[in-house]
């Protein structure tokens, strides 16, 4: 698979204090470490092990993921939006790579 690319869905605007739904999806095999290749050798584990979402630098939601999360990890969660600002999303790979995405939201 090509390198991991995140997708994020955040509403463009919200009312002050509104609770919105955020959806995220990232392309990743989430190789569990439990499988073997054709020659019977174990395929090493390689997963996204952490995800975090912040709003204007403040933590909103974060999680640790294990190999039991499906390929192309999907996470849907909520966020309360006090004012206009920027959501930042980070995914951490076992190999140390960090994938990032950003979305701004306007409070009307």
């Amino acid at each position: 698979m090509a390198k991991s690319k995140p997708r994020v869905k955040v509403p463009k605007s919200a009312a002050a204090g509104e609770v919105i739904t955020i959806k995220t999806l990232i392309s990743h095999d989430m190789e569990s470490g439990q499988r073997k290749d054709k020659d019977g050798n174990p395929i090493p584990r390689k997963i996204i092990n952490k995800f975090a979402c912040t709003f204007n630098g403040e933590p909103v939601f974060e999680c640790e993921l294990d190999p039991a999360i499906s390929a192309n990890p999907y996470l849907e969660f909520s966020a309360k939006v006090p004012q206009s600002g920027t959501f930042k999303f980070t995914w951490v790979d076992d190999d140390g790579s960090v994938y990032e995405a950003e979305n701004t939201i306007e409070v009307q």
């Binding site: 939601f61 974060e62 999907y74 849907e76 969660f77 309360k80």
Partner: peptide, 16 residues
């Protein structure tokens, strides 16, 4: 998985 929420989560809910 282990999920952590904050006041900014608004609602403690997650789907995966």
């Amino acid at each position: 998985a282990t999920f952590r929420f904050t006041a900014l989560s608004g609602v403690a809910a997650v789907t995966t």
